[in-house]
Write a protein that binds this DNA or RNA. Structure first.
Lengths: 185, 185
DNA sequence: GTCGACATGTAACCAGTTACATGATTAA
DNA sequence: TTAATCATGTAACTGGTTACATGTCGAC
């Protein structure tokens, strides 16, 4: 019974996504992979084998429990159920601010996808932070754009920069649509 | 002299970015890391140690050569120069179509960044393919949107879907700006 | 005297992928 | 009879990260 209760910060995308899916009901590895492909898919698509590799680790960490379900005309299955510790850890992770620096993998959409599990204000704060960060980037990019535009030697870098601008603008449009909606709920 | 001349398809993002940077001039690992942070950064930001790890592999594969440059009041350095094989491989990779399926890492912007090294038609084809793929996705997402909108239980999935729509529209706007420009060159 | 730029690397680790391996049931 | 669905896992590998390790020179 050495359920070590690992900290929430050390959880990988796959582990977090699984916890999110287990939140609503217990599932087998097979179910989880299917649920991922159908639902979170836009945000998270792990290999099947990876799901199986991660599940025992969740149990070891005290985030979930397993139970073998014998079936007659189907192979037996291992069904995983989230624990109190798992739920608490997941919600804590959900609500904690996202590291916006480039390179840090983007878990923003994963948090939004499971947005119903956190307090409304926490989700609103995430969206506001993203909006603020992107607005800053946008200003930076616009400055660089002014310097680079027209410089033939930098033309292809300029094209990628313009994608950066388009992307930043898209985030801002999205946030400006979503924020009033969340406020109205 | 066992320069095995590995195939181009087996090159990683880091290896390709380095080849792209070496295309214009020879550089040390230190230079490459700096150049990456300043330029390709938007698209590629490897760890310093990773750059050093990859360089000998490029030499082994016949993509580059090394030369030790002794310096008086600076540590000696290893300067890497791209070979004919390296250039050919890089251009072949640049021009070959991108795997648009989700999950396949996105090398699109890397190709655009080094777009000056390929034939104009090849770059145009990349942008057109991206546009076509995204337009398809957009149609799909719009259909799902119709089904999901208003379903309270799916609200948070609906928010992420709407990001997908915004993103797809951003790609299309970008492509529609860039394509006529490329045609005019 | 301390900080930043110059310069290179090793070692340990982690997340994730593909390929391999197995096998029953059910529907077309 | 062929393919899809159900069901779980191991092994080998890759691409990448952080931390450790070392040392000089020049500017403030």
């Amino acid at each position: 019974m050495a359920t070590a209760q690992r900290a929430t910060s050390s959880l990988s995308t796959t582990e977090l996504s699984i916890l999110g899916l287990l939140f609503s009901r217990e599932r087998s590895g097979y179910d989880l992979k299917k649920a991922a492909d159908a639902g979170v898919g836009y945000v998270w698509t792990p290999a099947r084998s990876h799901v199986y590799a991660v599940l025992p680790r969740l149990v070891e960490g005290g985030f979930a429990t397993v139970r073998t379900v014998a079936q007659e005309r189907r192979p037996d299955k291992q069904v995983y159920r989230i624990t109190k510790h798992g739920k608490d850890s997941f919600v804590r992770w959900l609500e904690e601010p996202i590291d916006e620096r480039p390179g840090s993998s983007d878990l923003f959409l994963l948090k939004v996808f499971f947005g119903g599990r956190m307090r409304r204000e926490a989700l609103v704060a995430h969206v506001e932070r993203r909006r603020a960060y992107v607005a800053e980037k946008l200003a930076e990019f616009r400055e660089i754009e002014g310097e680079v535009r027209g410089d033939e030697t930098e033309y292809y870098g300029y094209l990628t920069l313009r994608w950066g601008l388009e992307l930043a603008e898209a985030w801002i449009r999205w946030a400006d649509e979503v924020l009033p909606e969340l406020a109205d709920r």
